[in-house]
Design a protein around this nucleic acid. Sequence first.
DNA 1: ATCCGTCCATGCCGTCACGGCATGACCGCG
DNA 2: CGCGGTCATGCCGTGACGGCATGGACGGAT
Lengths: 304, 304
Amino acid sequence: MSELRRLRYFLAVAEERNFTRAAERLHIAQPALSRQVRELERELGVELLSRTTHKVEPTEAGRMLMERGPALLEAADSLWRGVRAFADGRLGSVSLGYGMSAGYDTAPQLLLAMSEEAPGIEVSARVMSFTDIVNGVAAGTLDVGLVRCAPPQQELALTLLRLERQGVIVGRDHPLAQGSATSVNPADLDGLKLLLHARDHNPGHYDQLMDICAQAGAKPEVLVRGLDFDASYTPVASGAAVTIVGETGRVGLPAGLVWLPLEPAAAVEVHLITRGLNRSPAIERLLKVAVDTAGQHGWLRPQG
Amino acid sequence: MSELRRLRYFLAVAEERNFTRAAERLHIAQPALSRQVRELERELGVELLSRTTHKVEPTEAGRMLMERGPALLEAADSLWRGVRAFADGRLGSVSLGYGMSAGYDTAPQLLLAMSEEAPGIEVSARVMSFTDIVNGVAAGTLDVGLVRCAPPQQELALTLLRLERQGVIVGRDHPLAQGSATSVNPADLDGLKLLLHARDHNPGHYDQLMDICAQAGAKPEVLVRGLDFDASYTPVASGAAVTIVGETGRVGLPAGLVWLPLEPAAAVEVHLITRGLNRSPAIERLLKVAVDTAGQHGWLRPQG
DNA sequence: ATCCGTCCATGCCGTCACGGCATGACCGCG
DNA sequence: CGCGGTCATGCCGTGACGGCATGGACGGAT
């Protein structure tokens, strides 16, 4: 039954052409080896080695085994190695969902880091809505989600990935951008038209932004913007409204718009969310790479 | 250590997606199967199956094993089958040596039968001198020899293959062929010039032919002929001598020569000689095919 | 909500394959 | 002819493996 071990034993003897030396190589006693080879011969019904007391020669069948045997052992080893590669997360696949607004910087950086640190892991990344991400991770159809203001759900495990400093996007001619203004006080948002995603989309995020204003005593007039980010710049560009985004939104801003950090600083937490149990090694590996990446980029320093 | 069995077990469970059914299929109890799969997982350090009480699903590593595992099992099986093919003599190689005079009929028939009955056995046949054949078989450098009048040597095993009726080749105008003669009495050879191979070449053969003459009271004058058969016909064709050959020598006789059987009949034994021990299955197989062939052709009937 | 059936895991035990040690048998060499 | 080297065999202890009985968890039906 334990055929591969016996095959290994036989190959050792056949190569050494000597039971005693082969036994030493295999770290077993010579009688044990002698019996195992005999047993293999009995099972196969063939004489594999023609032995005289002072010479051991493979028979024809033995020579065939010598030719094809090593390939079989190698195939077996390769299979075990492959499986083990899943175990330490060198191999695998992970599905990642992230919101559009996270796609500007965090998600690409994470994917880049993964391709460098864990090239064996296939990360299938898709832009999804916040609710689909949360539900997907909870249901197990999605491995990892990248979201702002993750909901405190029991079965979800959160990995803080980034503290994203928030700022205001205004037209270059907007009063808030007048002079040499390098920041915006949330109190100054009072009474302004503020573009935000619908609260249903991500209640935590909505509430946090409103809270920032409320803490400063500001009561902006909220306008709901669509999920498509860029298209919402129009009212901002015209000066009719302002919006609050993380600093990752400042890159690639259309001409005529400026991003001014809130002062005092306010940050939004970006998390990786996973299910708490049954995480595959590949998922664990992604989390590890993500934390490393966050450290390298200073994503966790509040001033970001 | 007994990895292949465990792989088989795992594959059964993974395919059935159910331990109980897989256990039945494998003819072992469910707890044993459960533990073996767990043990496999422990050895590999990976969870292969994600089990809930009512569902069994392969993990990513498990799926890899499901894809590549069967090929490994098949490779192993194929190897065992191949080796077993040597065991029953379906596969192998045999070296065969035969004398020139046996090449006219017996050896080709045997090779033909082998190619039909045991196509997996490669028979490398060579024309060799009698002594080389006998020495080669005894020394183990040759597997099988096909010879007339095999010497009774201890370590050689003889397989009677053919009783070859002997006859006389004479020129058409020779006195022995006068009238409507259809046979030759050995007594009539008295005083004639008789072409034979040198006694050293095959003493048994020489002695037997001389014995046939002596039994009949004839004392021919022996001329030594070379090993090359055809070239020796010249003195026969000229009527200066006669020679004794088996009936296989009658086919392809040059015009002007006739073969007349000895009467009373005399036969020479043609044997396959092999070493008595350490015969490979392929050799055994050849012996079996040879005996069958002899039976089919009636080679063992004295008048044959 | 509770009960029941299904299914996987665990505990316990008997058997046998495997390996070690001591020893025997055989052969070549000096 | 004895000696050393080599493979085979006898005997025994250990551990892997399989069976049986049982526990525990989940889903479905009533």
